[in-house]
């Protein structure tokens, strides 16, 4: 690694900041990777000049060997912001890395001019710049990846909540029609959102309809029972409806007892039971 005193990079960036910026922006907007569709010229200019300013300060501070050092904190924070914004806007990781890597050419050009005939110096400086910019580009990729993962896990969460709608059927009566395979995580989400809705709506009866659930394993059966027990502790009654014959067999076979839970064959039966429990009577009007 070049020691800070021998490197001319700090001086080059300081003395030619404006020229480097011009060339860099030109480089970015002319290249085959230009994304003027996603980023306006003004934004590009703003981003680039901010980066270059921070880059200059970091270079000045001297620690060229380690971009993870405290001197580079400002640069890293800016790159993290840009990477995250890019991930959301739909840039590819290549676009984001190219943002950093495209600074190489302007810097090399300036270094070539300033190094003059000193080939050793030029080679050394080129190596320094390459290492620094490569590390920063890799850093953007990592941040990009991480923010993508955050987006994915948030979407998973949202999808889970969407797939378990708690609906109000009547005053004081809630229902959750469960459709699709129940895993432990999803059952837990159902349980929590159902219990929260019981509090919010002051519902005394909740119907869990599992007619759309193909199979029930021990864990899911236990989760259902826990939901029933928790609802009772809060002062509400749960009805489980739509238990298919084979699931009934499974439940008995697994040795799981649906203690305290009222079970009904169909959602319609459950609704009727719930209405009667709440003091309503259902009768057909004369036509």
């Amino acid at each position: 690694m070049a020691s800070p005193d021998s490197s001319i990079l700090p001086a080059v960036v300081r003395d030619h900041q404006r020229e480097i910026l011009q060339q860099w922006i030109a480089e970015q907007s002319s290249g085959s990777n230009a994304r003027s569709d996603l980023l306006s010229d003004a934004e590009l200019r703003q981003q680039s000049s901010e980066f270059l300013q921070l880059f200059r300060e970091a270079v000045q501070a001297g620690n060229l060997g380690n971009v993870m050092g405290t001197e580079w904190q400002g640069v890293r924070e800016l790159l993290a912001t840009v990477s995250k914004a890019n991930a959301i806007r739909g840039f590819t990781p290549i676009d984001t890395a190219t943002f950093v890597l495209s600074l190489k050419r302007p810097l090399f050009q300036q270094l070539t001019t300033d190094a003059g005939s000193d080939a050793d110096l030029l080679a050394r400086e080129t190596w320094t710049v390459t290492t620094v910019l490569d590390s920063l580009a890799l850093f953007t990729t990592e941040v990009f990846q991480r923010s993508r993962e955050e987006v994915i896990s948030r979407q998973q969460q949202e999808l889970m909540e969407l797939s378990t709608p708690v609906v109000k059927l009547w005053d004081g009566i809630l229902a959750v029609p469960l459709i699709g395979t129940l895993d432990s995580a999803r059952t837990q989400v159902v349980m929590e959102s159902l219990l929260q809705r019981i509090v919010d709506t002051e519902a005394g009866i909740a119907i869990i309809d599992i007619a759309g659930v193909p199979t029930v394993d021990t864990l899911v059966a236990q989760h259902l029972i826990k939901t029933v027990a928790a609802a009772r502790l809060m002062g509400a009654e749960c009805i489980i409806s739509g238990i298919r014959p084979q699931i009934a067999q499974t439940i008995v076979h697994l040795g799981v007892e649906l203690v305290g839970a009222v079970t009904k064959a169909t959602l319609a039966d459950a609704i009727l039971y719930a209405l009667r429990q709440s003091g309503w009577s259902v009768s057909r009007g004369r036509s």
């Binding site: 929590e192 219990l195 509090v199 502790l233 809060m234 002062g235």
Partner: peptide, 9 residues
């Protein structure tokens, strides 16, 4: 009365 959901779970 009034047991919170998290407490009940």
């Amino acid at each position: 009365v009034g047991m919170q959901p998290a407490v009940a779970i």
